[in-house]
């Protein structure tokens, strides 16, 4: 029985973590949060008045930790009222995630309006539609992130047997997914999507920072288009990173060949394998792209 619940928990946790990663990256890109936000912030100063949703709850880790912890805390308290079977966990998680989404919307609206208000010198106008069009999209991704992380926390607590309580697990997952999301997915948004008029194949020089694309496929670009672009690659790689992390961590506990030390040995081997992958990738890119050339 314990083995089955571990197996089931590992599969479920990996799957939920993958989805959470995809949604988290899309959420931060729809709101242009985290590090690329500095570019959206810089744009009006060099004359690029934009129509991006400037959510600016900067520090993705604490922000995501808040959505996940709020959802998980409410769900945790509600399951005590509802009973405690799988169905009540699901319903409680949905209610909790909905509540944390309201908080996300409130913070998002407040920061967009405040940031634009502080842009008076650069003649940036507050367009209501550029706030209200991406907001439901952003909220939807935020809802899904919080829901996935809450369910992940429940499955890590009850199926995988982590001794931490559900809200604390959600807090840890929120911080971790924020750190992973801002360090993988955001590169695609910050260095490719915002700067599509610069050639593919180079980083963005510090001298041109702020010169972001303000026009899109048709008309002015808004933040609804962003997840459509970034989800095809950036979101998936973020999901891959978080999904692999949670999956491998749980998977390493399935074996018992060396007693309590098994999982440590398995993870150490995995760490070495990942290092080899990093090396191979570097060799491949150096061969494929070579030195920087002007063309």
């Amino acid at each position: 029985m314990a083995a089955i619940s571990l197996l089931l928990g590992t599969a479920l946790a990996g799957f939920l973590a993958f989805l959470a990663g995809v949604f988290e990256d899309s959420e931060s890109n729809a709101g242009s949060a985290s590090n690329p936000n500095s570019q959206v912030q810089l744009a009006p100063q060099i004359g690029n008045r934009h129509r991006y949703f400037n959510k600016a709850i900067s520090g993705e880790p604490p922000a995501n930790a808040l959505w996940a912890t709020t959802a998980a805390t409410i769900a945790y308290l509600l399951t005590a009222h509802f009973g405690g079977d799988a169905f009540s966990v699901l319903v409680a998680s949905i209610i909790g995630a909905a509540a944390s989404t309201l908080l996300l919307c409130a913070y998002g609206v407040l920061s967009h309006i405040s940031r634009i208000a502080s842009m008076k010198n650069f003649e940036q106008t507050l367009y209501w539609d550029s706030l209200l069009t991406p907001l439901p999209l952003d909220a939807a991704f935020g809802f899904l992130t919080a829901l996935m992380l809450t369910l992940l926390a429940f499955s890590a607590h009850s199926l995988l047997g982590n001794p931490f309580s559900v809200p604390l697990l959600a807090f840890f997952f929120g911080i971790t997914i924020g750190a992973i999301g801002s360090s993988t997915g955001d590169i695609y948004y910050g260095a490719e999507r915002l700067y599509q008029h610069y050639i593919f194949g180079s980083g963005i020089p510090i001298s041109v920072q702020g010169d972001i694309d303000v026009k899109g496929e048709y008309g002015y670009r808004n933040s609804v288009d962003t997840p459509y672009f970034t989800m095809r690659f950036g979101g998936l790689v973020t999901g891959l990173a978080f999904g692999i992390l949670i999956f491998l961590d749980a998977w390493s506990r399935l074996f018992t060949f060396a007693g309590v030390w098994t999982s440590v040995i398995v993870v150490s081997v995995l760490v070495l394998i990942i290092l080899i992958f990093i090396y191979l990738l570097e060799v491949y890119t150096r061969k494929r792209y070579g030195r920087y050339t002007e063309d």
């Binding site: 912030q41 100063q45 600016a56 709850i57 900067s58 520090g59 604490p62 922000a63 930790a65 808040l66 912890t69 709020t70 805390t73 913070y107 407040l110 920061s111 405040s114 940031r115 208000a117 502080s118 842009m119 008076k120 010198n121 650069f122 809200p167 604390l168 959600a170 807090f171 929120g174």
Partner: peptide, 21 residues
């Protein structure tokens, strides 16, 4: 954890949201 993180956001966000010239 909930008490910690909700105070964190309320404390760090006001200046973060208003940043600008």
């Amino acid at each position: 954890p909930f008490i910690y993180i909700i105070i964190t956001l309320a404390v760090l966000h006001p200046y973060n949201a208003s940043t600008g010239a």
